[in-house]
Computed example of a mutant assay.
Amino acid sequence: MSARKHTISVLVNDQPGVLQRVSGLFGRRGFNIESITVGSSEEAGLSRMVIVSTGDDRMLDQISKQLYKLIDVIRVVNISAQPMVAREVALIKVAAEPSQRPEVLGVVETFRASVVDIGPHSLIVQVIGAPDKIDAMAELLKPYGIQEFSRTGVTAMIRGAAQ
Rank of each mutant, 00 (worst) to 15 (best):
I8F: 15
E103P: 02
R151L: 05
S150R: 05
V77G: 00
K142I: 06
V127W: 02
A81P: 00
G24Y: 08
V115E: 00
A161I: 11
G24E: 08
N78D: 14
A130P: 02
P98K: 10
R21P: 00
K65C: 00
F31R: 14
D135L: 02
N78I: 09
N13L: 09
Y68G: 00
I79A: 11
S64E: 14
D132G: 03
M157R: 10
Q126P: 01
G55E: 03
V76K: 03
I134R: 01
Q20T: 07
M59G: 10
A90H: 03
H121I: 05
S150Y: 07
I71K: 02
K65V: 09
V94T: 10
F26N: 10
L70N: 03
L60A: 13
P131R: 06
Q147I: 12
D72Q: 10
E139C: 04
Q66A: 15
Q100W: 04
I118N: 01
V115P: 01
G119C: 07
F149S: 08
P131W: 03
T152M: 07
G39H: 14
L67D: 02
G39T: 13
Q66V: 09
L70P: 05
R112Y: 01
H121C: 00
G45I: 05
T152L: 08
V85I: 15
D14P: 02
R151T: 05
L67F: 02
S40D: 14
G160W: 12
L67N: 01
T7F: 06
A90F: 01
Q62K: 15
M157F: 12
T54M: 07
G160M: 08
K133F: 01
E42G: 06
G55F: 07
N13F: 02
A44Y: 08
R28A: 09
M137T: 00
L19P: 05
E43N: 08
E148D: 14
S23C: 10
D61W: 06
D57S: 12
Y68K: 08
L11E: 06
K65F: 00
H6K: 12
T7D: 08
Q66L: 15
L67E: 03
A81I: 09
M49V: 06
V77E: 10
M137S: 04
E34P: 13
R159W: 09
K65S: 03
A90G: 04
L105R: 12
E88N: 07
G145A: 12
G30K: 13
R112A: 03
S23L: 07
V116W: 01
G17A: 06
P102K: 12
